[in-house]
Structure formats: structure tokens, C-alpha cells
Write a protein that binds this DNA or RNA. Structure first.
Lengths: 192, 192
DNA sequence: GCCTTTGCCTAAAGCCTTTAGGAAAATTAC
DNA sequence: GTAATTTTCCTAAAGGCTTTAGGCAAAGGC
């Protein structure tokens, strides 16, 4: 019967590749079975259901992203760290669009807590240490960073920048400059 | 036969309500037909297909959002304008989660050009006029604004802030303070 | 009252999901 | 080396959602 030797890991890997090729929302149990040269029912012995498959891809993506970010962060601090980290996100989104979309999936609290998502916020906090923000402001700053990265890449990928002139990379650079400047000069609470 | 008197407009309106109730990706032609007490095939005389329906909801949402934003902007400038505008976005997302998700849909260039999306960027530019940025930087600033708003609300809605302490509204306020400060003190290109 | 438009329906084909139950290959155990 | 077990895969089948084709009936204009 010449079996392909599939298992959960291989399947999710293949699912991630499929996502990058055709888009995350086109990742269906049927399409994946077709791609693996196997009947649909087969996949259900490796994966609980469609949602489980998608969550698997999301966790894979979050892990890869955290690994790359950790690598990029090694030995860097300040603006250099900020830029390196941000570029990992953006580059990953361009290089693996389907996986990146998967990483945006809403996960239930349990799953999220066990995901590489926690590593991500830890790294953002590490970057912020180089900017010496007062503690109560750190969380706000982490959220700002996440918002800017997520927001910019999301808009860029979604074609939100396709109608105005400057190419995204130029804006990206200026946005990172701006965020760096902001972190170095974080406004105090009593500002009018 | 006691007909309900449906037409495209009413259908898209109902679709928007359905989206807010069960989530935008649960908006299916079948579900909408069920909700309207009509057979599935009926909807296909009002709407080209599933995608067309979703695009319709997206355009409705973009229009509503632009209207509300324009209202909020009237008679305001500077930080007041920035805050009012930003709050319209965030409030809308909370009040109409399904529509907000619809508004994030990727539209093909044609459709996007004819949508209220252009009003949105015009309003952002109007806000920036109060900050007197040099022209080449304006577009970058518009993109930063969009990124922050989109990013923050997206993360908040996606549960990305559920695991750390301060409630989102507090961070939102601080983030808006920070963005205001940044716009008032936009870094020059030659900064190291 | 007739006619056109508009709203709606039945029927049917195609694809995706998911479960149930069973065969064959690969692995392990004696 | 063979027997038992586990793993991988399959056929079959039921239920949903999408979309097209063709036709009936209500509403409204003339």
C-alpha cells in the first residue's frame, strides 16, 4: 500500500507550506489530504479536526517566529535590538505569509499560555530594558510596540499601502525611527 | 406567499447584524437565509455570491466608520482630534465586532478605490495638519497612525492583552498620549 | 384587468467536514 | 521467525454550505 508515513508533525508542516502557497484560509483538511496524496479520512487519525490543524500551524508559526527573533536579538540592545526584532516580524510575514496569518489566529487562553507567545512578550520587555522606562509604563510600551508591528505588517500585507506613494520599506524605516525616538523620550503622565 | 420584501440593502444590513452576533467568518449565505426566513437560493437573486455579500458588509462598515469619524472630528484639532478619531475606531470595534472584522477584509484595488477607505486616510491627513509635519513625513505618519489604531484594536479584540495586568483602556490612553507626543516631536531624518 | 418586475421556491450537483468500522504495513515482543 | 500490537490508511456514509437552472406568484404600473 506504499504509505507515506504521515504523522501529526509532518502534517502540520505540510499544512504550513500549503498556507504559504495558497493562503491560510484556504488550508482545509481536504486540500491538505490532496496535497499529501492521501484520502481525507486519513488526516483525521492525525488531527482532531480542522480547527486543531489550524491551531497546530499557528503554534508552529509562533515558535518559528520566536526562534528567529531570539536569534536576531542576541548581542543587540537599544535601537539596534528594536530594529532587528521588528524586521524579523516583517520579514517573516513576507517570507511566510500563510504562517504569519496563522500566527494571528485567536487562541483560547489555555493554548495561548502554552504557546511561544509568552516568549514574544518577554523579548519585547527585554528590548525595553534598554530604554529605561518607569515600570508602570513598560506594559503600555510593550502594547504599543505590538500594535505598531502587528498593525503595520497587517496593513502592508492587506494592501492598505498600495494606493499612496512611498514604498512600504521607506515608511517602515521611518516608523521604526519614530518609535525609537518615542521610547527614548516617553511622555510623563502629567503632560497636558 | 407572504414575502419578506428583501433586497440587496436589507440583506447586507442583516448580514452586518449577523456578523456582530456570531462573528464575521460565521456569516454564510446559508446562515443569513435562515435568519431571514428564506431559502438559500433566494439570496442569490440579491447577491452575486458569498464573497459579494462579505464585500457588501465590509463597505457598509467602512462607510459607517467614516461617518462616525467625520462627526467626531468636527470642530476639533490637535490632540483632541487625534483622540476623538482614535476612539471612534476603538468604540466601533467593540460595539460592532463583526462589522469591524469585515472592514479589515482585503478589497481588490477597484473596490477599495471606490470605498470609504479614501475618506479615512483623508481624515488622518487632516488630523496631521494640526501637527505641522514636513510633507515627506506626512505619509509615514499616516501609516503609523493607521498601524497603531489597527494594531491595538486588533490585538485587544483578539485577546492579545488578556494575559497581562493593566486593563486595555488604560494602555489605550497612554498609547494615545505617546502618539500625540511623538507627532509633536517627530524625529528628523538625520537622527543617529 | 394585463404585463412587467421583483421576490421567492424546488431541484440538483459539487465540495468540505466528520464519524464509523475495517484492512494492511510497520514495529515490537517472544 | 512468527505472533501480537500499533500505526497508517481506506471505503462508506451522513450532514452542511455554495451555486446554478428553471419556474411560480405577488406587487405595482398603465
Amino acid at each position: 500500500m506504499a504509505r507515506a508515513g504521515l504523522n501529526r508533525g509532518r502534517l502540520i508542516q505540510a499544512g504550513a507550506e500549503l498556507a504559504d502557497e495558497v493562503g491560510f484560509d484556504q488550508v482545509t483538511v481536504s486540500a491538505l489530504a490532496r496535497r499529501c496524496g492521501v484520502t481525507v479520512a486519513t488526516l483525521y487519525s492525525h488531527v482532531r479536526n480542522s480547527h486543531d490543524l489550524r491551531v497546530g500551524i499557528a503554534l508552529l508559526a509562533l515558535g518559528e517566529l520566536a526562534d528567529e527573533a531570539a536569534d536576531a536579538l542576541a548581542g543587540r540592545a537599544g535601537k539596534e535590538a528594536l530594529t532587528a526584532f521588528a524586521n524579523v516580524y516583517r520579514d517573516y510575514a513576507h517570507r511566510r505569509p500563510g504562517r504569519w496569518a496563522a500566527a494571528q489566529m485567536r487562541l483560547d487562553p489555555q493554548t495561548a499560555a502554552g504557546s511561544a507567545g509568552v516568549r514574544h512578550s518577554a523579548m519585547m520587555r527585554a528590548i525595553l530594558r534598554g530604554y529605561h522606562l518607569p515600570e508602570p509604563e513598560q506594559t503600555h510600551a510593550v502594547r504599543l510596540l505590538g500594535s505598531v508591528f502587528q498593525g503595520f505588517v497587517g496593513l502592508e500585507m492587506g494592501g492598505g499601502f498600495d494606493h499612496s506613494a512611498p514604498a512600504p520599506p521607506e515608511s517602515w524605516e521611518r516608523v521604526l525611527d519614530a518609535v525609537d525616538a518615542l521610547l527614548r523620550n516617553w511622555p510623563t503622565t502629567d503632560a497636558t
